[in-house]
Design a protein around this nucleic acid. Structure first.
Lengths: 215, 215
DNA sequence: TGCTGAAATTGGTCTGACAACTTCAAGGCT
DNA sequence: AGCCTTGAAGTTGTCAGACCAATTTCAGCA
C-alpha cells in the first residue's frame, strides 16, 4: 500500500484522474496483479478510488502516505437513523459555530446567495430540498474544516438512502424555513453561540418531522 | 460482499471469533479465492475484520448486511490534528448533552465512580490520563448512542498516535480537572445545556494545551 | 459528417502453486 | 512428571497465467 501510495503521490494525480491500469502498476512495482487489486480494493472501501469495469480506476480524493482513515460502521434501520441524527446534530452545531467565527466576506456572500435562492424557491414551490442542502453545504465550507463537510455530506447521503425511498412530504421541515435567515444573520454577526442556538432550532424541527415520518 | 455478510451473519459470530478459512468460504459460496480475499480486504479497510498471517481472520465488529460504512480520510500532521479536535468538540458536547438527558441511576453511579477514581489519582500523582479517559468513556456510554463512543474512541486513538510520541507534560490539561465534577453534576441534574457548557470548558483547556505542545 | 462494428483496453474472476507464519500435539529430554 | 524441541498441518500472503465481461477506441462505411 505504501509503495503504491508513493507511486501515485509522485505522479501528481488530481481527484477525477485515472490511475494507471492494474497491469501497468503490476509491472512498474514488480508485484503480482492480485496484490495490486487488493490494495485498490482497500482504497475502494475507504472511498479513495472508484473502479469502472472496462474503463479504469479513478481517484476520488487526494491521498498521501500520511492520510489516516477512520472507518465508521453505522447500523441502518430505525435506530441507526435516529442515532445518526444525533451525531449529525453535534457536528452541524459545531460547524455553524466555527463558521460564525471564521466566515470571511466571500463566504458570507456565498451563504447569503444560497439563502436567497432557497427562500425564492421555497416561496414559489413550498419546499426547497436541494437549495436547502446547498445552503448548509456553504456553511460547512465556511467553517474552514474539511472534515465537517466530509462527514456531514456522507451522513446526509446515508440518511437519504435509508429513507429516501418513501417519498418526502411536500411541506417537510417547512417550519424550519424562517430559522435559516436567522442562522445566516448569526453567522454574519460572528456570534458562535447564536449560530449554535439557531442550528439547534432548525435541527429540532427536522428531527421532529423525520420521527413523524418513520413512525 | 452481501453473500459473505449473510453467511457470517447467519453463523452467529461474536467479535473476537475467527472466521472460516478462505478456502472453506470459497467452497461454501462457490467463488474463487481471490474474490473472497478481496471482500475480506474490503472489510479489513473498514475495520470490521483483522487478518493474522498463519492464524486466521478475526471478526472485530458485529456486522449485518444492513450495516453502512462511512470511511473518513483525515490529513495527519498539524492541520489534521487541529481539525480533528474541532470535530471532536462537536461530538463530545452533544454526547454530554444527551447523557444529561438520558443517564439512568446506574449510569450516574458508574460515572461518579470513575470521577472519584480520577480525582483520587489526580490528587496523588498530579495527572490522571487513563482515569480521565475512563470518565469520559462512561459519559459516552451513558448517552445511549453507540456511534458517539465509536467515533470518539477512534479519534482519541488517532490523536494519541499522531502526537503521542512526544512526551506528555505531567500537568497536561490539569486546569480542566475541577470542571469534571461540574460536568458530572450537570449530567446528574439532567441539565443538557449546563453539560454542553461544562464540556466546552474542559475541551477549551485541553485544546489550548495541545496547541501549546505542537507549536 | 455521423454511424456501425470489430478490435483493443481494462477491470473481475477463477485456478493452481508456493512462501511465510502460526498453532498444536507428539515425542524426547531432564 | 514436567519442560522443551520438533515437525506436520493449517492459514494467510503473494505470484502467475488464463479467461470473461464491460467499456472504450477507432477504422471503415454510408
Amino acid at each position: 500500500m505504501r509503495a503504491i501510495a508513493e507511486y501515485i503521490g509522485h505522479s501528481d494525480l488530481k481527484p477525477g484522474d485515472c490511475l494507471p491500469p492494474e497491469r501497468e502498476l503490476m509491472a512498474e512495482l514488480s508485484v503480482g496483479r492480485s496484490t495490486i487489486r487488493e490494495v485498490i480494493r482497500h482504497w475502494q472501501a475507504l472511498g479513495v478510488v472508484e473502479s469502472r469495469r472496462g474503463s479504469g480506476t479513478y481517484l476520488l480524493r487526494r491521498i498521501s502516505p500520511e492520510t489516516m482513515h477512520l472507518p465508521l460502521a453505522v447500523d441502518s434501520g430505525r435506530d441507526g437513523l435516529l442515532q445518526m441524527l444525533e451525531v449529525r446534530r453535534g457536528l452541524e452545531v459545531e460547524a455553524s459555530a466555527l463558521a460564525a467565527l471564521r466566515a470571511g466576506a466571500a463566504d458570507l456572500e456565498r451563504i447569503e446567495s444560497k439563502l436567497l435562492i432557497m427562500e425564492a424557491v421555497h416561496r414559489e414551490k413550498g419546499c426547497a430540498g436541494p437549495e436547502d442542502l446547498a445552503f448548509h453545504l456553504a456553511i460547512y465550507d465556511a467553517c474552514g474544516n474539511p472534515i465537517f463537510n466530509q462527514l456531514l455530506s456522507q451522513m446526509r447521503e446515508s440518511v437519504q438512502i435509508l429513507f429516501g425511498m418513501s417519498r418526502v412530504r411536500v411541506d417537510f421541515a417547512a417550519r424550519s424555513f424562517p430559522f435559516h435567515r436567522e442562522l445566516f444573520e448569526a453567522v454574519a454577526a460572528k456570534d458562535p453561540d447564536a449560530a449554535r442556538a439557531k442550528t439547534l432550532s432548525i435541527l429540532a424541527i427536522v428531527e421532529e418531522d423525520i420521527k413523524d415520518m418513520i413512525r
